[in-house]
Design a protein around this nucleic acid. Sequence first.
RNA 1: GUGGAUAUAGUUCAGUUGGUUAGAACGCCAGAUUGUGGCUCUGGAGGCCGUGGGUUCGAGUCCCACUAUCCACCCCA
Length: 429
Amino acid sequence: MAMLTQAPRGTKDILPEEAVKWVFLENKFREICRRFSYREIRTPVFEHTELFRRGVGETTDIVEKEMYTFQDKSGRSITLKPEGTAPVARAYIEHKLYNQPLPVKLFYITPGFRYERPQAGRLREFHQFGVEAFGSQNPLLDAEVMALAMQFLKEIGLEDVVLHINSIGCKLCRQGYRKALKDFLVESRQKLCETCSSRLDRNPLRILDCKNHECIKVLEGAPIVLDYLCDECKSHFEMVKNALSLINIDYMVNSRIVRGLDYYTKTVFEIISDDLGAQSTVCGGGRYDDLIEECGGPPTPAAGFGMGIERLAAILEKNNLVELPEETADVFIATMKDEYLNTALKLLYDFREKGIAAETDYLKRSLKAQMKYADKILARFVLIIGEEEMNSGVLTVKDLTNGKQYKVDCKKIIDYISNRIRKGCGEYE
RNA sequence: GUGGAUAUAGUUCAGUUGGUUAGAACGCCAGAUUGUGGCUCUGGAGGCCGUGGGUUCGAGUCCCACUAUCCACCCCA
């Protein structure tokens, strides 16, 4: 029974009131991307499971326990995309976009799916904005994707966020660090929490991310990734920081940022807000120089980010940051008698044809009730058609913002309304 | 997957030590004499009290299970 009347766990309906906010965010995001010369790409909602196993990484939580995977009718293993980057990388390879002028800069707006326990800022179906820039190892691109994210956040009025950056090095220097960290932690293995203890063998870097107090204590004095970077990675990181400073993007270096997806190399970053609960990351990303090759494409450096739309919306909501004009009908057509309905209907569609938002009564309401209704849907004008108006050909127009009424020849009514609307709320001469 | 809290009209919430027809506010609909919204007044509709068991003469109230929601862990957007 509830199955018919309740959305599946971890999913949400976006009702009209909220949908306008989403459209606002989407429009803004598209606009910023355009300014940074990123072009939109749309990829399927599901992919071959193998793409995520390889791309995201076999040992990640996402792959190990969070994917929506199923067999389709021909026995293929299909997975609803748990993140946006791997599918874009796949499309990049499949369509040989590396033959386009480099770098190839793409953005997307997509749903994502992960099977997790829902909580504040975390859903099973979530939505994200993302960008990916392929084909250059220039640190300016690392800085650019961060700058794009920060610019976007700034323009939607969200300035109270902090950009945390770090470098986890390339394949080579990470090995050295991994070993150093492991050596350091092995002695205190007992003190680590259960998961971290097992991480020690499988993926020691992730221990840095743990919020367990004991683990944090153990980590005091642990070797820091930045000290183990090779010369190349070190200078890359320096250049990223320089670029950020140069373009006035505030950031802080945080050696505990490591990210939970395997494909990251060198630069990683998160944008964090205090206004969310435990899920405080609004945006996460970084460089991933090996992913394309790992998925069977030509060696191609790349950088990008993903940004959680629900989390954005939550912060904006909490701080009352989006002030959107309420949706209104420009004109409501009220009729006194059924005999006038044909006239009203023609007028209704004439208005709509001319780009004027027009509405009428569909419930056979009294004039009074029609007025009330017009008021509730925030109509600007009510146009009254009654006996007098039908006889004289002169319509009564009431301005609901001030209650004033005017008589307007029915032949001029479209022009009259469209003029009044264009002039905003001003008086009409 | 683990832990805690919660579940009563469309919404936010009352509901006494278990006791008869489960209430309020807001919202919705309709009226307050001839063709006019907002304010006010009046009336109306709307609840398998999350679902299923149990205790009891009697359960919205007590017990158990399930489901869902919220919060946190894990992890991430």
